[in-house]
């Protein structure tokens, strides 16, 4: 069980794809202008990641080492095509607003990276869990970034959620504050760069706090009583 806890910790925090590995920066910066888009792309990536991890893990013993990368890429491409067709069929508005970044999941380094680094060395159950956690970590970063940018940029939350979840979801739309002048920078890619930079800084601060607390604890426990005489 502790193995699974370690996988979850790695995916969600310690080795987070968005904040630590800095993989998949292109969609991270391009589509996080609103929370809805962020969730849409995050869930699509997560679905592909789980599927590809399971399939790669299943075939890992039958694929010759020399041609493993092309095989992985073909598995991923097939899954991305399936996800793209699904989104096209059931969430057409989202399909339009995600645009090229949906098919571009195939080039997202997180997926090939996890296939190579984890799924090709572990059993399907672990690989699936790793895909879930890595995808979750990536989606969470996308969501935080999307929420911050949407609030700063147009003062709303869940704008256009009905495109993702169906027509009932338009009640989710939240007007946080009224903006007369939209803060354009937050909506533009440079704003996403600033946002990611600040998020990474925040994570480093938290890590530093945790580390300093841990050393303080160990310092108090290593106190020893001197039993020998010093001459």
């Amino acid at each position: 069980m502790s193995q699974y806890r370690e996988i979850a910790w790695q995916g969600l925090w310690k080795n987070n794809p968005g904040l630590v590995q800095l993989l998949g920066l292109c969609p991270l910066l391009a589509v996080t202008a609103t929370l809805t888009n962020a969730i849409g792309l995050g869930v699509a990536t997560m679905a592909v990641l789980i599927g590809s991890n399971i399939l790669v893990s299943l075939v890992r013993d039958y694929v010759p080492k020399e041609i493993r990368i092309p095989v992985f890429v073909m598995i991923i491409a097939a899954l991305v095509t399936a996800v793209q067709l699904l989104v096209n069929a059931y969430a057409y508005g989202l399909y339009l607003s995600l645009g090229i970044f949906l098919p571009l999941i195939v080039t997202n380094c997180i997926i090939i990276g996890r296939a190579e680094a984890f799924a090709s060395r572990n059993n399907p159950l672990k690989a699936a869990f790793d895909g879930l956690m890595m995808g979750m970590g990536f989606t969470l970063v996308l969501m935080v970034l999307g929420a911050v940018r949407e609030i700063l940029g147009q003062g709303t939350l869940f704008d256009g959620a009905d495109q993702l979840l169906g027509s009932w979801a338009s009640v989710l739309r939240l007007e946080v504050w009224q903006v007369n002048t939209p803060f354009l920078l937050a909506m533009l890619p440079p704003g996403a760069f600033f946002g990611v930079g600040l998020l990474i800084a925040l994570k480093n601060v938290i890590d530093k706090k945790l580390a300093s607390r841990k050393t303080q604890v160990t310092e108090t426990t290593v106190q020893r009583v001197r039993v020998t005489k010093v001459n």
Binding site: T181, L184, L185, P190
Partner: peptide, 10 residues
């Protein structure tokens, strides 16, 4: 530049 890009009207 930040202001010019973010608030072109003002």
């Amino acid at each position: 530049v930040l202001l010019l890009i973010a608030f072109p009207v003002q």
